[in-house]
């Protein structure tokens, strides 16, 4: 079980790997599309990598609800519980 801080750090690493964005830029209140400029294709890659890293399943229909980094952290934390 990862803490929210660990999930955030892990997500930041995945986002950096996919997009080259600095991990520090991946903050809880940031929107994936509007602030981080992540397109839908990159988002799907991030989702699949996050599933593997955190051992969770993020259904395709859930992805559109993950608007901010915080949404993703909460979803992953909930799915791990």
């Amino acid at each position: 079980m990862a803490s929210n801080e660990e999930i955030l750090a892990g997500l930041a690493e995945i986002v950096n790997e996919e997009t080259g964005l600095a991990p520090e830029a991946v903050e809880l209140d940031k929107s994936f599309t509007e602030d981080l400029d992540i397109d839908s294709i990159s988002m799907m890659t991030i989702v699949v990598n996050a599933e593997e890293k955190f051992g969770v399943r993020i259904p395709d229909e859930e992805v559109k609800n993950l608007k901010t980094v915080s949404d993703a952290v909460s979803f992953i934390a909930g799915a791990q519980a």
Binding site: S40, I41, S42, M44, T45, V48, E51
Partner: peptide, 10 residues
């Protein structure tokens, strides 16, 4: 199939 990258087609 879940691991086939979304960038595969382009």
């Amino acid at each position: 199939p879940r691991r086939v990258l979304p960038m595969t087609v382009p």
